[in-house]
């Protein structure tokens, strides 16, 4: 049981090492290379907008075209997260809401 859990498939090795590699590259690039490079404001805006846009792109299809329960729960998560700034609280609210709404709809 635990041995099975500890086994790492070949494609997981590849994927995880590739992700670790590029992530380390981003860390080292700032440390060792970028001190002398000047970024234009445009490139800097692009870099700083990237993570937020990635997250939005990730959730948009589920929230916007997933159904009523998803849309309402998504809005609730946004509200809770905005007020509490707590990730666990927002997650619990979202999960509870979707559980309840699906039950009501079904």
């Amino acid at each position: 049981m635990s041995g099975e859990f500890l086994t790492i498939p070949a494609d997981s090795w590849t994927a995880l090492l590739a992700m670790a590699g590029v992530t380390y590259l981003t860390r080292v690039a700032g440390f060792f290379l970028m001190g002398r490079v000047r970024l234009t404001a445009r490139v800097e805006r692009w870099l700083s907008a990237l993570p937020g846009c990635m997250l939005v792109a990730l959730v948009a299809p589920v929230v916007l075209s997933g159904g009523v329960a998803e849309a309402v729960s998504g809005a609730l998560v946004l509200a809770v997260s905005w007020r509490t700034r707590s990730l666990p609280a927002a997650m619990v609210a979202g999960v509870a809401s979707i559980w309840l709404l699906r039950r009501l709809v079904a």
Partner: peptide
């Protein structure tokens, strides 16, 4: 989805 939404805020 909830986690990503919270991270986005």
């Amino acid at each position: 989805t909830a986690v990503f939404l919270a991270l986005a805020t």
